[in-house]
Amino acid sequence: MLCSPSSLSHHQRTSRLSVSMATPLATRGLPLASRGPPSSSSSSSWPPSSILLGRRPSRRLRSSSPQVDAAAAPEKGGEYRPSFADNLLLAFFRSKMVEEVGWDSEKPGYAGLMEVANRLMVKGKSASETEQAAVRVLQSLFPPLLLVLYKALLAPIANGQLASMMLARATALSCQWLMGTCSVNSVTLPDGKSWSSGVFVEKCKYLEESKCLGICINTCKLPTQTFFKDHMGVDLYMEPNFEDYSCQFNFGVPPPPLDADKALKEPCLDICTNARRRRELGRNIVTDELSCPQV
């Protein structure tokens, strides 16, 4: 059947209108990737990769936490902070010193311990008597049988090397509450051998807080050397540095004679109040007379 031009024109217009209306309806149910490109006003790269992969466009998130300044971070080392166990050791040591002195300070903690140490220093009629009292305090810290067995069984092994190395590690581990930060190091013996039986104290708190060379010598250095030799069978030579307050423990090294020990010939500490007063009263005093009167 032939159609007239007018009817054909009307038929074509109707078909085009139907197609134009059906096209968007058909594409609504299709995924985004199957749709045609947008108009020329859109971006030239179509479709975006995030749409092709089925992901939402990502955003960069800024952290709200402040940046850490490396210079403000706490440094390693520094002053030793005692733990709960250290406080127990301090209380135990102080109680033994109080038993020897027969007097206790009203001050708590380390400050009270230093007052008891000063009283121990004053109580002795001589430096030798003070040293013997300090040795008794050290003895009371250990079970008597332990000291006997250590001296008889461990001290003779390998000419004392094992016992010296054990004591160095025990000292560095258990005495930082008293002396401050310390570490094990190597020492040279008189025969030239090297043992890792030394303990280096960076800055002795006992010396710094006492402010007295005599307290260091008579209640720490000399009695400690005597205690380890006589009651544990191990030689010990302690070398305190009265300028920077460090101290070197040399386990396995015998101490020199008293008249040759340089620590006993040092003048009073600059921080000693008695020494400062003596210097103010007598500026013409010779060096020998400035030596600590407590040594």
Rank of each mutant, 00 (worst) to 15 (best):
M1W: 03
L2E: 01
C3G: 05
S4D: 13
P5E: 10
S6D: 14
S7Q: 12
S9N: 09
H10E: 08
S15E: 12
S20W: 11
A22K: 09
A26M: 13
G29N: 07
P31W: 07
P31S: 14
A33C: 01
S34H: 14
P37G: 08
S39N: 11
S40E: 13
S43C: 03
S44C: 05
S45Y: 07
P47M: 00
S50T: 15
S50N: 14
G54Q: 05
R55H: 12
R60P: 04
S63R: 09
V68T: 15
K76L: 15
G77T: 11
A91S: 15
A91P: 12
F92G: 07
F93I: 00
S95T: 11
M97W: 13
E99T: 05
D104E: 12
K107L: 13
Y110K: 05
G112P: 14
M114I: 15
E115P: 06
M121P: 00
V122E: 12
S128D: 14
Q132P: 03
A133D: 13
R136T: 07
R136I: 04
V137L: 05
V137S: 05
L138Q: 15
Q139Y: 03
P143Q: 03
P144F: 06
L147W: 04
V148G: 02
Y150I: 03
A152F: 02
A152Y: 05
A152E: 06
I157W: 01
A163Q: 02
S164Q: 02
M166S: 10
M166A: 14
A168K: 00
T171N: 02
T171E: 02
Q176I: 04
T181P: 01
T181R: 10
S183R: 15
S186N: 08
T188S: 12
T188K: 13
T188V: 15
L189A: 01
P190D: 00
K193G: 02
K193P: 00
S196P: 06
V199I: 02
C204Y: 03
K205N: 13
K205Q: 08
E209R: 02
K211Q: 14
N218I: 02
C220H: 10
K221E: 11
L222D: 03
T226D: 12
F228E: 00
F228A: 02
H231D: 03
P240F: 00
N241I: 05
E243R: 08
E243I: 05
Y245G: 03
Y245W: 06
S246P: 10
S246N: 09
P257Q: 06
K262R: 14
E266D: 03
C268M: 15
I285H: 11
I285D: 15
V286A: 09
E289H: 06
E289A: 03
L290P: 06
P293W: 08
